[in-house]
C-alpha cells in the first residue's frame, strides 16, 4: 500500500480510537446478550461500508470472512473487487476478530424456530452459515425471535424493506456497532 493511504489511515485511526473510547462506555452498560462489537479497522470501514454498513467481524466465522474477501469479484451479485494487498490486510484483521456471535437460546416455536433449525443444521455440517451470510446464521434468527410477528412475516418475504442485510433500516446505530434493542425502530414500511 502507498505511504499516502497509510498516512490517511493513521490519521483516521487516531480519530477512531477517540470515538470508540467514547462509544465503548455506552456499549458496556447495555451489553446484555448483545453482539460483541469491536472498533473497526479504518481500512475496513473505508472499503466495506460503501454498499452496506460495515458488519461486525464477530458476526461470522473466520472461514466465511476468508471466502468473502477472496471472492470480491463475485460478491452477492455485484463486483466489489479490491487489490491484493488490501485483501490480505482485511483478511488478517477480520479473521482475528471473527466468530464472536452470542450463543443464543433456541427459539421455542414459530417462524424463528424453523429458520433457526435449518441454518443450525447447515452450520453443524459445514462450519459456516449458508452463503456465508450473517442473515442466514442461526444466532441471527435466535436473537430476533422476540421481534413482533407481523414484522417477521414481512421480513421473511423481504418485500417491505429492501433487504434484512440492511441492519440500519431498523437498528439506528448499527453503523457504530451498536445493535441495542433500545435503538431499534420499525421502518415506516413495516408499521402496521
Amino acid at each position: 500500500m502507498s505511504n499516502r493511504s497509510n498516512a490517511a489511515i493513521h490519521a483516521a485511526s487516531a480519530c477512531l480510537a477517540f470515538a470508540s473510547a467514547a462509544l465503548s462506555s455506552v456499549a458496556l452498560a447495555e451489553e446484555e446478550r448483545n453482539i460483541h462489537s469491536v472498533p473497526l479497522l479504518p481500512l475496513y470501514q473505508q472499503e466495506c461500508s460503501a454498499c452496506h454498513i460495515a458488519y461486525q467481524p464477530g458476526m461470522l466465522p473466520a472461514g466465511s470472512w476468508q471466502r468473502i474477501v477472496n471472492n470480491l469479484k463475485q460478491h452477492y451479485g455485484v463486483n466489489a473487487s479490491l487489490d491484493e494487498d488490501t485483501v490480505k490486510e482485511l483478511e488478517q484483521w477480520l479473521t482475528a476478530q471473527a466468530d464472536r456471535a452470542p450463543a443464543m437460546p433456541v427459539p421455542p416455536e414459530g417462524h424463528a424456530a424453523r429458520s433457526w433449525l435449518a441454518f443450525k443444521l447447515f452450520e453443524v455440517e459445514t462450519g459456516h452459515p449458508p452463503e456465508d451470510r450473517i442473515t442466514r446464521s442461526s444466532w441471527f434468527w435466535g436473537i430476533h425471535q422476540r421481534m413482533p410477528s407481523a414484522m417477521w412475516r414481512q421480513l421473511e418475504n423481504q418485500k417491505a424493506i429492501k433487504s434484512i442485510s440492511n441492519c440500519d433500516t431498523c437498528h439506528t446505530t448499527a453503523d457504530k456497532g451498536n445493535f441495542s434493542k433500545h435503538n431499534v425502530r420499525a421502518p415506516a414500511a413495516l408499521k402496521p
Binding site: A50, C51, H52, Y76, G77, V78, I161, K162, S163, S165
Partner: peptide, 9 residues
C-alpha cells in the same frame, strides 16, 4: 440508492 441493498449513495 443502491439497487440491491438500498443504502444511500
Amino acid at each position: 440508492k443502491h439497487v440491491v441493498t438500498g443504502k444511500s449513495i
